[in-house]
Protein backbone atom coordinates (compact mmCIF):
# COMPACT_ATOMS: atom_id res chain seq x y z
CA UNK A 1 0.00 0.00 0.00
CA UNK A 2 1.45 3.39 -0.90
CA UNK A 3 0.19 6.70 0.47
CA UNK A 4 0.97 10.28 -0.57
CA UNK A 5 3.03 10.62 2.63
CA UNK A 6 5.09 7.53 1.69
CA UNK A 7 6.12 9.27 -1.52
CA UNK A 8 7.05 12.57 0.14
CA UNK A 9 10.66 13.58 0.79
CA UNK A 10 11.87 16.44 2.98
CA UNK A 11 12.47 18.56 -0.12
CA UNK A 12 9.71 20.76 -1.60
CA UNK A 13 9.45 21.21 -5.38
CA UNK A 14 11.37 24.18 -6.70
CA UNK A 15 9.68 24.45 -10.12
CA UNK A 16 8.53 27.85 -11.28
CA UNK A 17 4.97 28.83 -10.30
CA UNK A 18 2.50 27.36 -12.80
CA UNK A 19 5.05 24.88 -14.17
CA UNK A 20 3.43 21.87 -15.87
CA UNK A 21 5.75 19.62 -13.84
CA UNK A 22 3.58 20.02 -10.73
CA UNK A 23 0.60 18.18 -12.18
CA UNK A 24 2.69 15.61 -14.07
CA UNK A 25 4.39 14.79 -10.76
CA UNK A 26 1.01 14.64 -9.06
CA UNK A 27 -0.44 12.33 -11.73
CA UNK A 28 2.52 9.96 -11.38
CA UNK A 29 2.11 9.91 -7.59
CA UNK A 30 -1.62 9.20 -7.95
CA UNK A 31 -0.82 6.24 -10.23
CA UNK A 32 1.82 5.07 -7.72
CA UNK A 33 -0.70 5.21 -4.88
CA UNK A 34 -3.39 3.37 -6.86
CA UNK A 35 -0.94 0.63 -8.02
CA UNK A 36 1.18 0.35 -4.84
CA UNK A 37 4.47 1.38 -6.46
CA UNK A 38 7.12 1.76 -3.76
CA UNK A 39 10.79 1.19 -2.94
CA UNK A 40 10.37 -2.58 -3.16
CA UNK A 41 9.10 -2.69 -6.73
CA UNK A 42 9.82 0.55 -8.59
CA UNK A 43 12.77 2.71 -9.66
CA UNK A 44 12.84 6.11 -11.35
CA UNK A 45 15.52 7.05 -13.88
CA UNK A 46 15.82 10.74 -14.75
CA UNK A 47 17.86 12.76 -17.19
CA UNK A 48 19.00 16.33 -16.65
CA UNK A 49 16.48 19.14 -17.11
CA UNK A 50 13.66 20.69 -15.06
CA UNK A 51 11.98 17.27 -15.03
CA UNK A 52 15.07 15.64 -13.44
CA UNK A 53 14.66 17.46 -10.12
CA UNK A 54 11.57 15.33 -9.55
CA UNK A 55 13.81 12.61 -8.03
CA UNK A 56 14.49 14.92 -5.08
CA UNK A 57 10.77 15.25 -4.32
CA UNK A 58 9.71 11.63 -4.82
CA UNK A 59 10.62 8.88 -2.37
CA UNK A 60 11.29 6.09 -4.89
CA UNK A 61 14.84 4.71 -5.31
CA UNK A 62 16.18 6.59 -8.30
CA UNK A 63 19.12 7.44 -10.51
CA UNK A 64 19.53 10.94 -11.92
CA UNK A 65 22.11 10.31 -14.59
CA UNK A 66 23.56 12.42 -17.34
CA UNK A 67 21.79 14.70 -19.81
CA UNK A 68 20.56 12.56 -22.67
CA UNK A 69 21.44 9.21 -21.09
CA UNK A 70 18.42 8.07 -19.04
CA UNK A 71 17.35 5.47 -21.61
CA UNK A 72 20.53 3.34 -21.67
CA UNK A 73 20.66 3.73 -17.88
CA UNK A 74 17.08 2.47 -17.56
CA UNK A 75 17.79 -0.36 -20.02
CA UNK A 76 20.62 -1.58 -17.78
CA UNK A 77 18.45 -1.32 -14.66
CA UNK A 78 15.57 -3.28 -16.23
CA UNK A 79 17.84 -6.03 -17.60
CA UNK A 80 19.46 -6.41 -14.17
CA UNK A 81 16.13 -6.54 -12.31
CA UNK A 82 13.08 -7.37 -14.43
CA UNK A 83 10.92 -7.29 -11.27
CA UNK A 84 11.16 -3.48 -11.10
CA UNK A 85 8.69 -1.07 -12.67
CA UNK A 86 11.17 1.22 -14.40
CA UNK A 87 10.06 4.77 -15.25
CA UNK A 88 12.19 7.20 -17.25
CA UNK A 89 11.54 10.92 -16.70
CA UNK A 90 13.02 12.82 -19.63
CA UNK A 91 12.62 16.15 -21.39
CA UNK A 92 12.37 16.89 -25.11
CA UNK A 93 15.99 18.11 -25.23
CA UNK A 94 17.20 15.28 -23.00
CA UNK A 95 15.38 12.63 -25.03
CA UNK A 96 15.55 13.87 -28.65
CA UNK A 97 18.56 16.17 -28.56
CA UNK A 98 21.46 14.68 -26.59
CA UNK A 99 19.68 11.33 -26.26
CA UNK A 100 18.21 10.98 -29.77
CA UNK A 101 20.37 8.05 -30.82
CA UNK A 102 19.59 6.19 -27.60
CA UNK A 103 15.85 6.79 -28.06
CA UNK A 104 15.72 5.16 -31.51
CA UNK A 105 17.60 2.07 -30.37
CA UNK A 106 15.86 1.65 -27.02
CA UNK A 107 12.52 1.87 -28.85
CA UNK A 108 13.39 -0.65 -31.56
CA UNK A 109 14.63 -3.07 -28.88
CA UNK A 110 11.27 -2.77 -27.10
CA UNK A 111 12.69 -2.65 -23.55
CA UNK A 112 9.87 -3.13 -21.02
CA UNK A 113 10.14 0.44 -19.60
CA UNK A 114 7.87 3.49 -19.42
CA UNK A 115 9.02 6.89 -20.74
CA UNK A 116 7.44 10.05 -19.29
CA UNK A 117 8.38 12.70 -21.87
CA UNK A 118 8.03 16.20 -20.33
CA UNK A 119 7.36 17.97 -23.62
CA UNK A 120 7.59 21.75 -23.04
CA UNK A 121 8.90 22.55 -26.51
CA UNK A 122 12.28 23.97 -25.39
CA UNK A 123 15.29 23.75 -23.02
CA UNK A 124 13.90 25.38 -19.87
CA UNK A 125 16.55 24.62 -17.25
CA UNK A 126 19.07 26.57 -19.30
CA UNK A 127 16.50 29.41 -19.66
CA UNK A 128 14.73 28.90 -22.93
CA UNK A 129 16.70 27.66 -25.92
CA UNK A 130 15.05 25.87 -28.85
CA UNK A 131 14.75 22.07 -28.51
CA UNK A 132 14.39 19.42 -31.26
CA UNK A 133 10.61 19.75 -30.73
CA UNK A 134 10.47 23.55 -31.07
CA UNK A 135 8.32 24.62 -34.03
CA UNK A 136 9.94 26.05 -37.19
CA UNK A 137 10.57 29.84 -37.10
CA UNK A 138 9.77 30.16 -33.35
CA UNK A 139 11.91 32.81 -31.62
CA UNK A 140 13.85 31.57 -28.56
CA UNK A 141 17.01 32.54 -26.65
CA UNK A 142 19.06 30.51 -29.16
CA UNK A 143 16.99 31.35 -32.22
CA UNK A 144 16.36 35.11 -31.96
CA UNK A 145 15.79 35.28 -35.75
CA UNK A 146 13.38 32.34 -35.61
CA UNK A 147 14.06 28.58 -35.32
CA UNK A 148 15.79 27.54 -38.59
CA UNK A 149 15.15 23.85 -37.83
CA UNK A 150 12.06 21.80 -38.45
CA UNK A 151 10.89 19.96 -35.34
CA UNK A 152 10.76 16.22 -34.64
CA UNK A 153 7.25 14.87 -34.05
CA UNK A 154 7.83 12.67 -30.96
CA UNK A 155 4.79 10.42 -31.61
CA UNK A 156 5.75 9.77 -35.24
CA UNK A 157 9.39 9.18 -34.23
CA UNK A 158 8.30 6.78 -31.49
CA UNK A 159 6.00 4.70 -33.73
CA UNK A 160 8.59 4.69 -36.53
CA UNK A 161 11.38 3.60 -34.14
CA UNK A 162 9.38 0.62 -32.88
CA UNK A 163 7.79 1.80 -29.64
CA UNK A 164 4.85 -0.50 -28.87
CA UNK A 165 2.77 1.90 -26.70
CA UNK A 166 2.58 5.52 -27.83
CA UNK A 167 0.28 8.05 -26.11
CA UNK A 168 -0.07 11.77 -25.60
CA UNK A 169 -1.54 13.55 -22.58
CA UNK A 170 -2.04 17.13 -21.41
CA UNK A 171 0.02 17.58 -18.22
CA UNK A 172 -2.72 19.44 -16.34
CA UNK A 173 -5.45 16.85 -16.96
CA UNK A 174 -4.41 14.86 -13.88
CA UNK A 175 -7.26 12.33 -14.06
CA UNK A 176 -6.54 11.27 -17.66
CA UNK A 177 -2.75 11.35 -17.27
CA UNK A 178 -2.92 9.13 -14.18
CA UNK A 179 -4.91 6.52 -16.16
CA UNK A 180 -2.53 6.62 -19.14
CA UNK A 181 0.51 6.22 -16.83
CA UNK A 182 -1.01 3.09 -15.31
CA UNK A 183 -1.81 1.65 -18.77
CA UNK A 184 1.68 2.50 -20.05
CA UNK A 185 3.28 0.62 -17.15
CA UNK A 186 0.94 -2.36 -17.58
CA UNK A 187 1.95 -2.55 -21.23
CA UNK A 188 4.68 -5.12 -21.80
CA UNK A 189 7.27 -3.22 -23.89
CA UNK A 190 8.56 0.27 -24.72
CA UNK A 191 5.83 2.69 -23.64
CA UNK A 192 6.10 6.45 -24.16
CA UNK A 193 3.72 9.20 -23.07
CA UNK A 194 4.27 12.56 -24.79
CA UNK A 195 3.09 14.85 -21.96
CA UNK A 196 2.27 18.37 -23.18
CA UNK A 197 3.75 20.45 -20.39
CA UNK A 198 3.24 24.25 -20.42
CA UNK A 199 6.34 26.22 -19.39
CA UNK A 200 4.88 29.51 -18.23
CA UNK A 201 8.29 31.13 -17.76
CA UNK A 202 9.79 30.70 -21.23
CA UNK A 203 7.20 29.28 -23.65
CA UNK A 204 4.66 31.98 -24.35
CA UNK A 205 3.05 30.02 -27.21
CA UNK A 206 2.34 26.53 -25.77
CA UNK A 207 0.59 27.85 -22.65
CA UNK A 208 -2.12 26.31 -20.45
CA UNK A 209 -4.63 28.50 -22.28
CA UNK A 210 -3.44 27.32 -25.72
CA UNK A 211 -3.76 23.67 -24.75
CA UNK A 212 -7.11 24.09 -23.03
CA UNK A 213 -8.49 25.69 -26.20
CA UNK A 214 -7.09 23.11 -28.67
CA UNK A 215 -6.82 19.63 -27.15
CA UNK A 216 -9.44 16.90 -27.65
CA UNK A 217 -9.54 13.17 -26.89
CA UNK A 218 -9.33 10.49 -29.64
CA UNK A 219 -12.85 9.20 -30.36
CA UNK A 220 -13.86 5.88 -28.78
CA UNK A 221 -14.07 4.27 -32.24
CA UNK A 222 -10.33 4.98 -32.78
CA UNK A 223 -8.36 1.71 -33.19
CA UNK A 224 -4.84 2.05 -31.64
CA UNK A 225 -3.73 -1.21 -33.32
CA UNK A 226 -3.80 0.35 -36.78
CA UNK A 227 -0.28 1.64 -37.39
CA UNK A 228 -0.99 3.71 -40.54
CA UNK A 229 -3.97 5.41 -38.83
CA UNK A 230 -1.74 6.08 -35.80
CA UNK A 231 0.86 7.77 -38.02
CA UNK A 232 -1.88 9.87 -39.61
CA UNK A 233 -3.39 11.12 -36.34
CA UNK A 234 0.10 11.59 -34.85
CA UNK A 235 0.72 14.30 -37.45
CA UNK A 236 -2.30 16.33 -36.25
CA UNK A 237 -1.30 19.44 -34.28
CA UNK A 238 -2.67 22.95 -34.32
CA UNK A 239 -5.84 25.00 -34.04
CA UNK A 240 -8.59 22.95 -32.44
CA UNK A 241 -6.86 19.70 -33.37
CA UNK A 242 -4.38 18.39 -30.79
CA UNK A 243 -5.48 14.78 -30.20
CA UNK A 244 -4.81 13.19 -26.83
CA UNK A 245 -4.98 9.53 -25.72
CA UNK A 246 -3.39 6.27 -26.81
CA UNK A 247 -2.31 6.52 -30.43
CA UNK A 248 -0.67 3.14 -30.92
CA UNK A 249 -0.41 -0.23 -29.16
CA UNK A 250 1.37 -3.33 -30.44
CA UNK A 251 1.86 -6.64 -28.65
CA UNK A 252 5.47 -7.65 -29.39
CA UNK A 253 7.97 -9.66 -27.31
CA UNK A 254 9.97 -7.41 -25.00
CA UNK A 255 13.76 -7.38 -25.15
CA UNK A 256 13.90 -8.86 -21.65
CA UNK A 257 11.68 -11.81 -22.67
CA UNK A 258 14.27 -12.83 -25.28
CA UNK A 259 16.77 -13.94 -22.60
CA UNK A 260 16.26 -17.55 -21.50
CA UNK A 261 18.50 -16.71 -18.52
CA UNK A 262 15.75 -14.43 -17.19
CA UNK A 263 12.85 -16.87 -17.56
CA UNK A 264 12.76 -18.06 -13.96
CA UNK A 265 14.16 -15.07 -12.03
CA UNK A 266 15.69 -11.61 -12.39
CA UNK A 267 19.40 -11.46 -13.28
CA UNK A 268 20.50 -10.23 -9.85
CA UNK A 269 18.83 -13.21 -8.15
CA UNK A 270 20.87 -15.72 -10.16
CA UNK A 271 23.80 -16.92 -8.00
CA UNK A 272 27.09 -15.63 -9.38
CA UNK A 273 29.43 -18.21 -7.88
CA UNK A 274 31.03 -20.00 -10.84
CA UNK A 275 33.35 -22.51 -9.23
CA UNK A 276 33.25 -25.06 -12.03
CA UNK A 277 34.76 -23.62 -15.22
CA UNK A 278 36.85 -26.67 -16.10
CA UNK A 279 34.64 -27.61 -19.03
CA UNK A 280 35.34 -24.19 -20.53
CA UNK A 281 39.04 -24.08 -19.57
CA UNK A 282 39.53 -27.56 -21.07
CA UNK A 283 38.31 -26.35 -24.47
CA UNK A 284 41.57 -24.39 -24.71
CA UNK A 285 43.79 -27.40 -24.07
Amino acid sequence: MTTMADLATPIMPNWCPGCGNFTIWLSFKNAAIENGWDNTNTSIIAGIGCHGHLVNFTKLTSFEGLHGRPLPLASGVKLANTRLNVFVFTGDGDCFGEGGNHFIHAARRNHDITIMLHDNGLYALTTGQASPLTEHEVKTKSTPTGNPDNPINPLVMAIASGATFVARAYGSDVKQLTEIIKKANEHKGFAIIDILQPCETYNKILTHQFYQDNVYYLEDSYDPKNKTKAFERAHEFGEKKIPLGIFYIEEKPTLESHYVQLESKPLIDIPLDRKNMDNVFNKYL
Binding site: M12, P13, W15, P17, G18, C19, F22, T23, P198, E200, T207, H208
Partner: peptide
Protein backbone atom coordinates in the same frame (compact mmCIF):
# COMPACT_ATOMS: atom_id res chain seq x y z
CA UNK B 1 -0.66 24.53 4.72
CA UNK B 2 1.94 22.67 2.59
CA UNK B 3 -0.69 21.21 0.24
CA UNK B 4 -2.45 24.57 -0.09
CA UNK B 5 0.93 26.22 -0.79
CA UNK B 6 1.70 23.65 -3.49
CA UNK B 7 -1.72 24.16 -5.01
CA UNK B 8 -1.10 27.93 -5.05
CA UNK B 9 2.38 27.48 -6.52
CA UNK B 10 1.05 25.23 -9.29
CA UNK B 11 -1.39 27.94 -10.46
CA UNK B 12 -0.15 29.05 -13.89
CA UNK B 13 -1.46 32.62 -13.49
CA UNK B 14 -0.82 33.19 -9.72
Amino acid sequence: AEIIMMAAQSCPVK
